[in-house]
Write a protein that binds this DNA or RNA. Structure first.
Lengths: 247, 247
DNA sequence: TTTCTCTTACTAACGAGTAAGTAATGGTGC
DNA sequence: GCACCATTACTTACTCGTTAGTAAGAGAAA
């Protein structure tokens, strides 16, 4: 049995683990540091990629371990050997995605200020050529609002971080513009207004993705994203003086 | 057995139905018009409401017929007696929702022009007091982008209609404003721009709902919705002269 | 008496997780 | 450089729970 699920960090206190044995092994001399081999890591990455595809196209609940395993050419028990449980596999997929994102941005500074918003628009442009990824993200996000979903904490955290990053970038831009005189230095732009804008930008991106996935002909993902972000930025910069067509 | 699943319209050619029998009934004299009793209709409505709750909180795939049945105090076979299959139940739920929506707006004219946008904002305000409904809508919408989901056609159609309604209202407002002089009569606002705005408004509403469901403290659903819609409207009305902070 | 609603009881399929065994691999002692 | 052995990476074969759907009959209603 054994079922490693190597948490990189050796000897984690995974109480739930099926092997409570060997805890009191009589002679534990050289504390073997069991580092995973390269081929194992490669295999796991294969499985993670497969899981991303499966959960992306069918959702977490509907996608089975057998589906994931099939794409790698093993059985579902083989997948469990590496990841222990389906929930665990999901969290590993999410962690993997995060790490891949970070790696992708490696070297090139994480954009701040106006560049962050350009980066978001650029992301939408890139995304409109890869519906698979977008679907994975959208399905998982939608599913995560169901009661007790294993990904809801991750998604919530992700949104929280994103909102904070966007809000910070907005504050930066506002400060810059006030200094350069592009913006009236006396203009009051409240934190609440900035937070509203941040939520709205994320929201419009996600919402457009849903529509675009269902009907790519009918929705210009990149165009609408760019337009909305600019609209939201413009209104935010206008502060209390922004036009209020509904008032 | 029999399993009626009365499609209101009697004698629909539901080929898929489990009873292909009685098709060539030898003596069919008085063509009994089998209208469902009131108590039956009431029961079905109970089931539909229960299904809305279940599919809303757990999703379609994860919500079981037993869950639906339990809330009505019958067994899952009882539900199948009325609706034949789970897929059928879902489509009936969606149809029911549509009818309920229409009924709700009955009498009061369907808002057009700027009133439509006020109505959308008002809806967001109302929604922020009923997370259950919002969750149902969000879960179903998210799930519908998975491959072969039974609700994807319905959701796609719904988005399509919504976009068209919003685009029409926008065109109205633009025409009005040009006539009243609020808008330069020479200003060009392309159909594409209007469509982009329509998609964006729907998108921001849906996207904000997801964030709000996951973290109601962190997101001001009504406020952000109102802000975004005004921002999008303002940018649309500005046409080619709109500010382009990212350019 | 016929129709309708609903139950009980079942089937067949599927899915996650467990147990145990097997073949390969690679490090260790020599 | 080789034999040995522990570990790893699986597989097969299950268990157990869950689920949609079916069949047939019971009781009530019209």
């Amino acid at each position: 049995m054994v079922t490693p699920m190597t948490d990189v960090s050796p000897r984690t206190a995974t109480a739930a683990g099926p092997d409570a044995s060997d805890a009191a092994a009589p002679t534990a001399p050289a504390r073997r540091v069991r580092r995973p081999r390269a081929s194992t890591l490669a295999r796991r990455e294969e499985i993670l990629r497969s899981a991303m595809r499966v959960f992306g196209s069918k959702g977490y609940h509907q996608g089975s371990l057998a589906d994931v395993a099939e794409q790698v050419g093993i059985t579902h028990a083989g997948v469990l050997h590496h990841f222990g449980s389906k929930d665990r596999l999901l969290t590993e997929v999410l962690k993997f995605r995060d790490e891949a994102d970070v790696e992708h941005l490696e070297g090139q500074h994480i954009p701040g200020g106006l560049d962050l918003f350009r980066h978001l628009v650029r992301t939408a442009e890139i995304n409109s050529a890869r519906p698979g990824i977008v679907q994975a993200y959208t399905v998982l996000t939608g599913e995560s609002v169901t009661d007790g979903h294993p990904a809801s904490a991750w998604v919530t955290e992700r949104f929280s971080v994103l909102r904070a990053e966007i809000a910070e970038a907005l504050h930066e831009v506002i400060a810059d513009r006030k200094q350069s005189g592009d913006l009236d230095a006396d203009l009051e732009i409240s934190d609440e207004a900035v937070d509203r804008a941040a939520s709205s930008i994320i929201g419009v991106m996600d919402g457009l993705q849903i529509q675009w996935l269902l009907d790519p002909e009918a929705v210009d993902l990149a165009g609408a994203t760019a337009f909305s972000i600019e609209a939201i930025l413009a209104s935010t910069f206008a502060g209390e003086r922004r036009p209020r067509p509904l008032a």
